[in-house]
Structures are given as C-alpha cells and as structure tokens.
Design a binder for these strands. Sequence first.
DNA 1: CAGAATCCAACCGGATACTG
DNA 2: CAGTATCCGGTTGGATTCTG
Lengths: 126, 126
Amino acid sequence: MKARVESDAQGRRQVYEACLEPCAIEQGMRIIGGKWTGSILWHLQDGPVRFNDLARMVGGASKKMITERLRQLETQGLVRREVMATAPVSVQYEITEIGRSALGFLDELRKWSEELPQDIHAASRP
Amino acid sequence: MKARVESDAQGRRQVYEACLEPCAIEQGMRIIGGKWTGSILWHLQDGPVRFNDLARMVGGASKKMITERLRQLETQGLVRREVMATAPVSVQYEITEIGRSALGFLDELRKWSEELPQDIHAASRP
DNA sequence: CAGAATCCAACCGGATACTG
DNA sequence: CAGTATCCGGTTGGATTCTG
C-alpha cells in the first residue's frame, strides 16, 4: 500500500513501489472526490430529496452536473433513484447504506476544511 | 452549512439554501481531492522524500503532475520544499503540520475505499 | 537529479434551449 | 417537474524533449 525508500547494504537507495495500482486513496477520491459529489451525498443524509430541491441545495452546480453525478452515484450504488407516479412526475434520491458509509469521513473532511486558515482556501484557486 | 427542505403552514415546500458558498466539503475537496494529491501527502507521512523517489512512489503520475501538485501543496502550506546543496542537487519534500492534519481522514478514506465492493471501483471509470 | 517547456488531444463543465 | 440535447471555450494531463 505504501511505498518505501530504503538503503541497501552498499548504501544504494531503493524504492519499493508498493503503491502502483490500484491505490485505495486515489480510487476512493475518484468516487467521492468529483465536483459536487461530496455535497450531493451530504445533502441526502437526512432523507430523500427531490431533484430540483437537490439542485438548489448544492449551490452553484448546474442541473446537468447534478444529473451526471447522480447517475454515477446510482451506478456505483451510493444513491437510489425512485420515480413517484404523480403528476407532474416527482423523482426522489435517497442515500444507500454504502453511500451512508462515506458520510463519516465527509464530515471529517468538513471539519478539517473549516478549521484551516482562511487564506489556504484562497490559495487553492487555479 | 446544510440546506433543508421544509413545508410551511400552507404545505408549500421551501428550500433553505444554507450551503451556497463556500461549502466546506467542496472547498476541502479542492485542496486534497486533486489527482495524486492524496497519494503525495500519504507518501510523505514517514519523513522527507526526494523528488524522483516521490515520482516513483506515486505510481502512474508523470513528473509534470508531481511538480504541479507539489507546487500547489507548497503554496497552501501543506508541504515544505528544501533544496540540499549537493552535487547533483537534491530536493526534499516534507509534510508540514497542516498537511499532517489531513492524514487522519485520508486514512479514513483509504479504509473506506478498501472495504468497498470491488465492482464499485470498476463502475467509477468514465 | 530535479525539473521546465512545449505540444496537443481529451475531457470537463457552464450556458442555453428544448421536452414529455 | 425532471430532466435531455447541443454547443463550445477552458482546463487537464500525458508524451516528449530539453536543461543546469
């Protein structure tokens, strides 16, 4: 999992590349690190939310983005989609148990992020 | 921080958009969610590492990427760069206290990712 | 060794307009 | 309401080559 650098008997350095592929951290980031993904899961933690409400809750994201992320989360099994047979049609999104299992460190991330010196966020813009 | 959907006395739904900007989760992701960023920090946790060693440890990343992420982490104060006056020149990268404070949930992320059903990772490719 | 420079194809994501 | 379709500029990131 973690690569090491050591020196052999002759003092030559050697890199043990134990983290070639797949790296769990990178893999995990590709699941919940996408733009808006974390926010979407976060806003689903208290129960099902309808599409347009979700789009409003995740401030700044376009409906196109919300749709794409939701589709991805659905195929990954982190979110469940339910169509209510009403008129006009209503669609609910609900977090699954797998999705819920990510909320723990999403909260860790939130706390970490909030406690950072403010200028760090400023320095994070391209 | 978290948006809510409620119904008023007349039964009309209302979205309280408490998560407009800045959203701590998104902000945090923009710091450590970048490609290779997590891996870089992860491989610095046991002490300073030289540039080329780091490039080998973070499997799959080009030197260009490693450089870019390291520069970003440096301006954000998560990583410290030290040039050793040797010949040929040697450059060390060391994690700072702020950077170290991220290792906690990076490890949470790693554990979460490792315990996921394998096919989820497969479903995460575009 | 530790990058910088350049090139370029692929992808991302916002804006806008349209639909059942 | 809950999307889909299309356009399109900007960014990303790999490959390659060069340097002190």
